[in-house]
Design a binder for these strands. Structure first.
Lengths: 210, 210
DNA sequence: AAAAAAATTAGGGTTAGTACTAACAAAAAA
DNA sequence: TTTTTTGTTAGTACTAACCCTAATTTTTTT
């Protein structure tokens, strides 16, 4: 699916102007004049980026940003658009993760470059997120015991050490180990370690490293 | 060594005011009234953070930031201080990695919190950098052949596969492998993989993963 | 030229891990 | 209640890796 550039601005003329510029380079646009309107219909699965006005009746741009940030599933890059120079506000939204903060009037080229950057970031985020999700799905399919054995393997412990710690026989550990390798879809320990390490798999579940 | 809060501002009264606030919480301060003055005497090994005025005679704050960013060794977190609200400038320096951008007049507490955050970031950066440096030092001690074998191990290849690829005997690979483990200071393959992966060791040297 | 480091190979013994099959009990799900 | 999953253990054969010593050649450094 093509990425969508969402435009949220209460100024109808501005929305149309932005749409025209964005569509002129072949990008898809969806426009909204109210923040909650966007929030209610937004599908996090759709990739793209968000052009967001700061000052709007009802929910403001920064408020919408805060709500989106609160949703763990959302990683939509945001470009703010502002008519008035409010430095503290600009700094705050940038610290909150905005990709850019443009003040009117701005050059079309500047806007388009910022959008391209936002779309690149979104693409990267989603690729990484998908990798993580796949790894997490595999991990979730492991039984509790298999998880314990996985932790031992990644920690570099030998099977006999794991068996002693879990108070089970070496043979049982070997069986779980084989099962872990199969379920995680890897053929070597280094692959397994990489999968766990680079995909934040069970970061909360793998405590002691000693 | 204690961290040092560097203050670079051409306004002598401002420098004194800032020093007083910072010293009141027990932090060390070094002040400069010219950017190049700081740049000439700054020791990247010293940890701390930088309070930097935007507008100054000679080199401006953002110019100094650019020069520091250009030095790979520098990771000093920067807090900008500005008397005039220039949104595009604030956004630019924030995108360039500044920790904060404060506009006068600002609350003492806000300043101190920002400084604390900057110092925390600096501490984290330096710890990570030191880890990386240690890993890189170990890696640098490996002979070319040992590096090739290391790549094979981390890629999950068996010794016989490595020996075939490098057209050397299995025994030779075993010898190099033992040497690699010893020089890298690890006792298991998972530890080795973690060391290489989380410390960017030879990211430019480990190409094919296939 | 002499010394040191790196790369190569080998043998022998030990330990660790894999592959495959098989079995049984307990717990969870259908 | 029957089926499935999970956890447990065992045997056997095979493969891979580790530890140790030792030797030769090549390259690099002094």
């Amino acid at each position: 699916m093509d990425p969508i550039v969402y435009v949220v601005d209460d100024d109808q003329a501005m929305v149309e102007s932005l749409s025209w510029i964005i569509e002129s380079v072949g990008l898809k646009v969806k426009t909204y004049t109210r923040a909650h309107e966007f929030l209610d219909t937004y599908d996090p699965a759709q990739h793209g980026c968000l052009l967001l006005d700061v000052r709007m009746p009802g929910m403001s741009g920064p408020e919408l940003q805060a709500k989106l940030n609160a949703q763990a599933s959302t990683i939509l890059p945001i470009i703010f658009i502002s008519g008035h120079g409010d430095v503290p506000l600009a700094v705050r939204v940038m610290k909150a993760g905005a990709v850019d903060f443009l003040t009117k009037p701005f050059n079309d080229q500047v806007l388009l470059e910022s959008i391209n950057k936002a779309l690149r970031i979104d693409k990267q985020n989603r690729e990484k997120q998908q990798e993580n999700a796949q790894a997490e799905a595999k991990f979730a399919a492991l039984s509790p015991r298999e998880v314990q054995v996985l932790q031992g393997i990644v920690a570099g412990k030998q099977n006999k050490v794991i068996s002693a710690e879990l108070k089970i026989s070496l043979k049982t550990v070997e069986a779980h180990r084989a099962s872990v390798m199969k379920k995680m879809g890897v053929k070597s320990v280094p692959e397994l370690v990489k999968l766990v390490l680079t995909n934040g798999v069970a970061a909360h579940e793998l405590p002691s490293e000693e």
